[in-house]
C-alpha cells in the first residue's frame, strides 16, 4: 500500500508530467488562457490517459512482447491512442451527451498530446505491473490537470497586469510557467 502512495505522490508532484518532464506543453499553453477550457482539457486528459495507459499496457504485455514486436511500439501505441480517442468521442456523443458537450472539442486535440503517449511509454520503460501502470497513469493525469488549472488561474491574473510589449502573450506565459515549475521543483528529493 505504502508503495502506491509513494508512486502517486511521485507522479503528481515530484515527476509532474508537465512541469518536470515537459510533456503536453502545447495543450498546456494552448488551453490555459481561460479557466473554463483548462478545466475541460484537464478532465479530458484524465479520462483518456487512464484508458490509454491501461490499453497500451495490455497491448505491450499480450501482443508486442509475446511476438517480439517491441520495435513496432511507437506505431502501435499511436494507432491505439488515436483510435481510442475517436472511439471515446463517438461513444460519449451517443451515450453521454452532457459529458460530450463539456469535453467534445478537447478530445481530438488529445491524440497529439504528448502527455498521453509519453505517460504510456514511461509505464513500459519503468516496467510497471498492471496495477502500478493504472495508478501511475491516473496520477500523471491528475498532475497534468493540477498544473494546468493552477496555471490558468495565474494567466487570468496576468491579463490584468501591464506586461511590457516584447514579453506579451507566449513569452510571459513561458516565464510564468518557469516560476510555477520552480514551485514544483521544491518537491524534488521528497520521494
Amino acid at each position: 500500500m505504502g508503495d502506491y502512495i509513494v508512486l502517486i505522490i511521485s507522479c503528481i508532484f515530484v515527476n509532474n508530467i508537465m512541469l518536470a518532464q515537459f510533456l503536453g506543453n502545447c495543450p498546456f499553453f494552448g488551453t490555459s488562457k481561460k479557466m473554463e477550457t483548462a478545466v475541460g482539457m484537464a478532465m479530458a486528459v484524465i479520462f483518456v490517459l487512464v484508458l490509454a495507459g491501461v490499453i497500451t499496457w495490455m497491448a505491450e504485455a499480450f501482443i508486442l512482447k509475446p511476438f517480439n514486436l517491441e520495435y513496432l511500439r511507437t506505431i502501435a501505441f499511436i494507432v491505439v491512442i488515436a483510435s481510442l480517442v475517436q472511439f471515446v468521442e463517438m461513444f460519449l456523443k451517443k451515450s453521454i451527451p452532457a459529458l460530450y458537450a463539456g469535453l467534445g472539442i478537447f478530445l481530438p486535440l488529445i491524440t497529439t498530446n504528448c502527455a498521453v503517449m509519453g505517460a504510456c511509454l514511461i509505464n513500459i520503460n519503468e516496467e510497471y505491473t498492471f496495477l502500478q501502470a493504472l495508478v501511475a497513469s491516473f496520477s500523471y493525469a491528475v498532475g497534468f490537470g493540477l498544473a494546468l488549472i493552477l496555471f490558468a488561474g495565474v494567466r487570468e491574473k496576468i491579463l490584468l497586469a501591464r506586461v511590457p510589449k516584447p514579453l506579451q502573450d507566449t513569452s510571459i506565459a513561458l516565464v510564468t510557467a518557469g516560476i510555477l515549475s520552480m514551485a514544483f521543483y521544491a518537491f524534488k528529493g521528497m520521494v
Binding site: T170, L174, S181, M182, F184
Partner: peptide, 18 residues
C-alpha cells in the same frame, strides 16, 4: 534544470520580439 528551460525560452522569445 526544468524551470530554467521555461525561463530561457521565454526570455529568448522576448528578445526575438524585440
Amino acid at each position: 534544470e526544468a524551470p530554467g528551460a521555461f525561463m530561457g525560452l521565454g526570455l529568448m522569445l522576448c528578445m526575438l520580439n524585440l
